[in-house]
């Protein structure tokens, strides 16, 4: 079954499955315990190394299982974990399992431009105002009309000593907001990179003991970024291209890493994201098989009642017109052939002397004849006329 088309062939919205977009991706940690070997951490010894790769390891079990930062003894105590997802995804959740006491403050950010700029998705803190200058998240969710970065309670320590950071985009979106119909929500869930800033360790520190050398290290595993490869409703899966980049397997006449534009010949109407109601497939231009390229014209699209705006370019086989649907000057439509036939347009072949011009009627093929001349190509004298010696008046009345 084709998830992007009905059984009858009609296009329908299709989306890739929910995956852990961070799985196997390289995590950039601003701090990882390395040298000198201390406290069972030695980056040169696999049995005692705690690299950031352990956060997103694909398959298998390792020992150790947790990434660990360097010992942090003085401010700043920030440690940043950045995960480039490789392409745009539509986020559903982000989670991170801590192997030691979870931090008291964490900021979660996303980038939509491969790390050039960052915006917050949410905060987690026991001191939202102090740490992030925000009020705690209301229990009812965001008050505004759109999603917003709220400050949630800090990850709670669990009996085993660890803790779990869990963020769901649903928690920061007003109820009733629908991804299909809300461009704001579509923008909110779109991300190319995720960044987690571990801002404040669990160890209580206040101004008085900020310099106190109470060593602390962040330690975590299982960084998950739940989401769908973003294909705008025009692909059911993402694949690796020959260059090793993750790209959508675009359908519906679309192309691009996110199926974000119409293919070159599929520009009869503007690109749109597919919805459950309407697939908004890009339509091929109607050129009767005589052109390989076309362009979109908004004015024509509006005039057609938003049905068709494609204009064929470089009509071949002596055809012309927006859809290559009539013959170019000097040619006429052969009624015995289909409009898509390569020989649908025949040369007028007007007689060089008998015809008054080279352009014939595009439907009948009749050339314009001089006085007294007849025939489709004006190659004979009409009854009652005879050929003269003058090329200007080739037929004269019979005496």
């Amino acid at each position: 079954a084709d998830p992007c088309h009905e059984e009858g062939g009609a296009p329908r919205v299709c989306v890739p499955g929910l995956v852990n977009a961070a799985l196997g991706r390289e995590v950039l940690a601003s701090s990882t315990c390395r040298q000198p070997p201390a406290q069972a951490c030695d980056s040169s010894d696999p049995r005692r190394a705690h690299p950031a790769t352990l956060l997103t390891l694909a398959g298998g079990t390792t020992s150790p299982v947790c990434w660990r930062s360097d010992w942090l003894t003085r401010a700043p105590l920030n440690v940043t974990l950045t995960v480039p997802l490789g392409k745009t995804f539509e986020l559903v959740f982000v989670s991170l399992r801590f192997c030691s006491a979870p931090p008291s403050s964490v900021a979660l950010l996303k980038s939509q431009d491969h790390g050039r700029s960052w915006v917050p998705l949410g905060f987690f803190s026991s001191r939202c105002g102090l740490d992030y200058g925000r009020p705690p998240a209301p229990a009812s969710g965001p008050a505004g009309p759109g999603p917003e970065a709220l400050c949630f309670p800090e990850p709670q320590p669990q009996p085993n000593g660890g803790g779990l950071l869990a963020f769901s985009v649903q928690d920061s979106s007003p109820p009733g907001l629908d991804l299909d119909s809300s461009p704001v929500l579509q923008d909110w869930v779109t991300a190319t990179d995720i960044r987690i800033v571990l801002t404040r360790p669990a160890v209580p520190r206040d101004a008085g003991d900020a310099e106190a050398a109470v060593p602390y290290a962040y330690s975590a595993t299982e960084l998950q970024v739940g989401g769908r490869c973003k294909c705008n409703g025009h692909a059911a899966r993402c694949l690796l291209d020959p260059q090793g980049h993750l790209v959508c397997d675009c359908r519906h006449g679309t192309e691009g890493p996110d199926c974000g534009r119409c293919k070159p010949f599929y520009c009869d109407r503007p690109w749109q994201r597919a919805t459950a109601r309407e697939a908004h497939a890009c339509l091929a231009c109607s050129c009767n098989g005589h052109a390989r390229r076309c362009r979109f014209n908004m004015e024509l699209y509006r005039l057609s009642g938003r049905r068709s705006g494609g204009v064929c370019l470089n009509c071949r086989h002596n055809t012309a017109g927006r859809h290559c649907h009539y013959c170019r000057e000097g040619f006429y439509r052969d009624p015995g052939r289909a409009p898509s036939d390569r020989r649908a347009c025949r040369a007028c072949d007007c007689h060089p002397v008998g015809a008054a011009g080279k352009t014939c009627n595009q439907t009948t093929g009749q050339c314009p004849c001089k006085d007294g001349v007849t025939g489709l190509t004006c190659n004979r004298c009409a009854p009652g006329f005879q050929q003269s010696r003058s090329p200007v008046a080739p037929c004269v009345k019979t005496p």
Binding site: V353, R380, C381, A382, V392, P394
Partner: peptide, 23 residues
Amino acid sequence: EVMPTLDMALFDWTDYEDLKPEA
């Protein structure tokens, strides 16, 4: 009545050299 096609050889191009079609 079907008239014969125009005979190009009968035309006198003396005064109309510029109109004469290429052979």
